[in-house]
Amino acid sequence: MESQSISISGSGRVSGGEYTQVRISGSGRVEGDVVAQEIRVSGAARFQGTVKAKEISVSGAGKFTDRVEADVLVTSGSCGIEGDAEAKELRSSGAQRIGGSFRGHYVRVSGVLHVARDMETDVFTSSGKFEIGGLLSADRVEIKLVGDSRAREIGGENIDIRASSGFSFGFSLTRGFRMGVGIGTLTVGEIEGDNVHLEATTADVVRGKIVHIGPGCRIGRVEYAESLDVHPEAEVREKVKR
């Protein structure tokens, strides 16, 4: 089927359907479900209906009122998805907000990410700030903390959380906290993984096989199967070997 492209550069409104390319650089509204090869938003766009595309990039302001499915979803502006989202690859250097759950393979956050429910992916890397209302699950979780991030639960194979480079340059972490110098923190209810390395993390429970609790951590209870080491500048209230 021959499908067409649309481009809105002033202000406009189109109905959903099947398109090759959708470009919105002015202010536009798409009403109805959309299937497209490529969607580019550099202005302000509002999609009312489900959206399915190979590639979606939002460098302006994009709002999606329903479910979004893409191979690649790139956000450098502000992107709000009110439903669930599924993307093989999500790269967000802007502000990404998902009202439901996210499923995918590869996620890279360098801006701000907000997911109301679960975030499930194979790889999750962040050097930004995130807030996940449910479970963050990945084979590889690599987080470099800037700002204060939160998740209800984190689970997977390798979980590696590092404080930002600030105190590897030798100033005391506790002081850093007191002065509020740009050191990120992570607050989580529960962390479960096979290899767990934590820094600057506050958690109720950490369970793992090989667990390393680094500086700045405050952990209620650690349950480990093989080994546990705790940095002198960390606080662990209870340690249990299984």
Binding site: R103, E120, T121, D122, S137, A138, D139, G155, G156, E157, N158, E192, G193, D194, R207, G208, K209, E223, R242
Partner: peptide, 21 residues
């Protein structure tokens, strides 16, 4: 309990979360 599942079945957290995903 989850930790007993891991022990009884001899699987890792990684596998359990992967299968759940």
């Amino acid at each position: 309990a989850k930790k007993d599942v891991l022990e009884e079945a001899g699987i890792s957290y990684g596998q359990l979360y992967r299968w759940k995903r």
